[in-house]
Design a protein around this nucleic acid. Structure first.
Length: 530
RNA sequence: GCAGACGUAGCUCAGUUGGUUAGAGCGUCGGAUUGUGGCUCCGAAGGUCGUUGGUUCAACUCCAACCGUCUGUACCA
């Protein structure tokens, strides 16, 4: 006996990565097609860059030579240069534009979908490889480009079947937040680190509430496991000022979402101007903060003029994102409906996409100003949400018709193969059984598990009379419930018709059409009862 | 990264104060049934008890380290 079994290689997936099923791939393809259609309509063209880039081109996240793999997956090329898998699609686009700046006509409007990689701790719904779908305008300095991006995001949400009122594109401006901090004495290079801490604290508002934000702005906060997070160490006066701004933001944000849910409210432009008026109180006059407020105002006007303020795009000063390279307007798409996870708990889903203006990214390479704005949709995340909303079209691809094999001699196999090809030539998905044909029961079992709609059967008897049996597996499965013993079940040959060989294609086509009608009727009934 | 909980068959889990041969359900495969899926019945395969080391006459059980999973937190371009 094999006591010492050869140690088997264990099949295992790296953590944070997933295999994708046929249904997932098809659903994703369908989503991508809808998104692409919107981008194309706005006049964007596809451009693709590779998954690898030289690490230094990806941005500021390389320099740590001790841990070259922190955050990114990196390898050394044979000439010892560091290369990394891209962690977003924006930095590679900046590289592409900079490298081809002489050939590219600015403004350059492009889109791309692709996998990005992050070497981080994975969690439920958080992977180390995921798909983004970006659109960017490079060489577009005005906020009208930002406004256009927001409106395109809104159109994309609706193209995916998210009804107006169930999402909102929230717009803020980095200059405003920076201006608020400048106004309380946190300007200048020496306070850069603290500004980041403050922004992170504000970003935690959803999670920890006002009180938690206050703690993070001050000394720090202790979480339930007893772990302590160091705060920004601001004075009480500074904290008070920031918190006042945050509370004001929260108020506007909640109002904005209310308007987003109740589309058609005519007072929204007034709300927006009131909101922007309030913001001026928190920044210094004549500062870049004031400039940011002006920009928000302009965006609001542009959006309103195009009628997109109507439950689609809303000014919301509580948006904090792009802590690093964003320089002006920032925006994100938030879903407003409840999403339940696989455990049946309602989770706050947060944003499914976002973006902003990054005026400095191309300049790193070219030395000259190439302002740009763009956004990114988290395809995998959005798909999870769409599943919840039942907007993800179910897998409509019907499994193939199975041509079973009753006899294994070459002449018979040739006949089965020919039948299969005739079905295919008629545009019908079909396959001939390729397993061990000697156990006929296994062939139907295979067809059943694969979800085949029909099985074609031709043994010696049928061949002698020039016919085939066509078995309706769907109807047969239904009849199975009414039959108890196996002998009756087998001998009654339920849901099975005989037809002349010449009529196979026509008969299969008719039976498939009948099944499609049944499915449509059932879907209709299920929909009506909900 | 930090803190905590948990790791027994492909999956979900039992397993007595440390005691000799580690079990169940589901799933898989085979048979009852050489030409008919489901149901039912019979049978089989499948385990270095996460890994390594330690304590002990004896470890799935106790201890330590490591690995992995989950939860919270940090980071998230």
């Amino acid at each position: 006996m094999a006591k010492n079994k050869p140690s088997k290689l264990k099949a295992r997936l790296p953590r944070g990565f997933v295999d994708r099923s046929a249904a997932d791939i098809r659903a994703t393809e369908a989503m991508l097609a809808k998104i692409r259609e919107v981008y194309e309509r706005y006049g964007f063209d596809p451009v693709e860059t590779p998954a690898f880039e030289y690490t230094d081109c990806l941005g500021k996240f390389l320099p740590d030579t001790d841990r070259p793999n922190a955050g990114v997956f990196s390898v050394q090329d044979d000439d010892e240069q560091w290369m990394s898998l891209r962690y977003d699609l924006t930095a590679p686009l900046a590289r592409h534009v900079a490298e081809n700046i002489n050939e590219i006509q600015l403004p350059f409007r492009s889109y791309r979908a692709g996998w990005v990689f992050r070497n981080e701790k994975p969690g439920p719904g958080r992977f180390r490889q995921f798909m983004q779908f970006d659109a960017d305008s490079v060489g577009a300095p005005g906020v009208q480009a930002d406004a256009e991006m927001c409106m395109m995001m809104a159109d994309t949400m609706e193209a995916l079947g998210i009804p107006r009122g169930s999402y909102v594109i929230r717009v803020n401006n980095r200059k405003v937040l920076d201006g608020v901090m400048e106004a309380i004495g946190l300007g200048g290079e020496e306070n850069a680190e603290r500004r980041l801490t403050v922004l992170r604290a504000i970003d935690k508002l959803d999670k920890f509430g006002i009180e938690g934000v206050e703690q993070l702005l001050g000394e720090g906060r202790k979480d339930e496991s007893g772990d302590f997070t160091k705060g920004a160490g601001l004075s009480d006066e500074q904290i008070e000022r920031i918190v006042a701004f945050v509370i004001q933001s929260l108020k506007i944000s909640q109002l904005a979402k209310t308007y987003a849910r109740n589309t058609g409210y005519s007072g929204n432009p007034k709300l927006v101007s009131a909101a922007i008026g309030e913001l001026s109180n928190y920044v210094l006059p004549q500062s870049s903060g004031a400039e940011g407020v002006d920009e928000l105002e302009t965006i609001a006007e542009l959006v309103s003029a195009a009628d997109y303020d109507n439950g689609r795009v809303a000014i919301d000063p509580s948006v904090v994102r792009g802590l690093e390279y964003y320089t002006g307007p920032v925006y994100e798409a938030e879903l407003l409906f409840d999403v339940t996870n696989e455990k049946g708990e309602v989770v706050q889903f947060g944003s499914v996409g976002g973006g902003g203006r990054y005026d400095g990214l191309v300049k790193r390479f070219t030395g000259r100003d190439v302002p740009a704005t763009g956004f990114s949709i988290g395809v995998s995340r959005l798909m999870t949400a769409l599943k919840n909303l039942k907007k993800l079209q179910a897998d409509e691809v019907v499994a193939p018709v199975l041509v079973t094999v009753m006899d294994g001699d070459t002449a018979s196999l040739a006949r089965y193969q020919k039948m299969t090809q005739e079905l295919r030539a008629a545009g019908i998905r079909a396959e001939m059984y390729q397993g061990n044909w000697k156990k006929f029961g296994n062939q139907l079992k295979y067809a059943d598990r694969r979800g085949c709609p029909l099985a074609i059967i031709q043994g010696g008897d049928e061949r002698a009379e020039g016919t085939v049996q066509i078995k309706d597996l769907i109807e047969g499965a239904r009849l199975a419930g009414e039959i108890e013993d196996n002998v009756t079940w087998r001998e009654s040959r339920p849901a099975q018709v005989s037809c002349p060989e010449a009529d196979i294609v026509a008969t299969v086509r008719r039976m498939l059409a009948e099944q499609a009608e049944d499915r449509a009727r059932q879907d209709g009934e299920a929909g009506a009862s909900q």
